[in-house]
């Protein structure tokens, strides 16, 4: 399963029309951004419910993508540590950093994991069609759907490169891993574009 790997299952969320799913996702994200922070737990509860409807284990998703946790965690920790003052919560006076840091964490988790659910429950080939329905140019819609598919490919390549390096005694080194993986990505992009051109793909056609 890649970072954004589509998981083929039978669920209400999977079977929703992709255009509707995309529209609902956009509305949900906007609602979260503009709603007061105190509504964050409600939105997070909805996110968890959606994962349940999609028959995807939320904790498993979080565990298998630990790097994503940094996105909500770091700003929330900063808030927890440096925000001063107090807020009243259910008649009690609590440190503002603790309250707002927690709400911020819940808010950001929802912001990160709801779009991820979209990627987990939507076939990349359908994303392109939905984006075009909403007016995105063909070229860009295609770039998005290819990017989704390519994440799993890049992850496999990274694993193989890492294994090859370790077999030759190389320690884990992000730069040593990144360069060959990037090279592979560019090579794949090149041949993929040739293959698509030879199959009549025209990025500028309607």
């Amino acid at each position: 399963m890649g970072m954004l790997g589509y998981q083929r299952k039978k669920s209400i969320v999977h079977s929703l029309d992709v255009r509707l799913k995309l529209a609902l996702l956009a509305l949900f994200m906007l609602a979260q951004v503009f709603a007061p922070l105190s509504f964050a737990p409600l939105f997070f509860a909805i996110t968890l419910a959606l994962y349940s409807f999609a028959r995807i284990d939320f904790l498993e998703v979080v565990k298998s993508r630990k790097a994503l946790l940094l996105l909500p965690l770091i700003p929330s920790l900063l808030r927890l540590l440096f925000e001063k003052g107090s807020v009243a919560v259910a008649g009690m006076l609590l440190p503002a950093g603790m309250v707002n840091g927690t709400l911020n964490l819940v808010f950001l988790c929802s912001l990160v994991y709801t779009p991820l659910l979209f990627a987990l429950t939507t076939a990349p080939s359908q994303i392109s069609g939905a984006l075009r329905f909403y007016g995105m140019p063909k070229r860009w819609a295609f770039i998005f759907s290819i990017a989704f598919v390519s994440v799993a490919y890049i992850r496999k390549k990274a694993e193989r490169t890492l294994a090859a390096q370790r077999a030759r005694g190389c320690r884990r080194n992000a730069l040593a891993l990144m360069l060959p993986v990037l090279h592979t990505c560019f090579r794949r992009a090149r041949t993929l574009s040739l293959s698509m051109a030879s199959r009549g793909f025209d990025a500028d056609a309607a």
Partner: peptide
């Protein structure tokens, strides 16, 4: 253009991994 060329001539590349991208 390529759309017209592809009707007459198809190509299979050496490494299928580089040309497969659908699900």
């Amino acid at each position: 253009g390529f759309p017209e060329i592809s009707r007459e001539a198809s190509m299979v590349f050496q490494d299928p991994n580089d040309q497969i991208f659908n699900l």
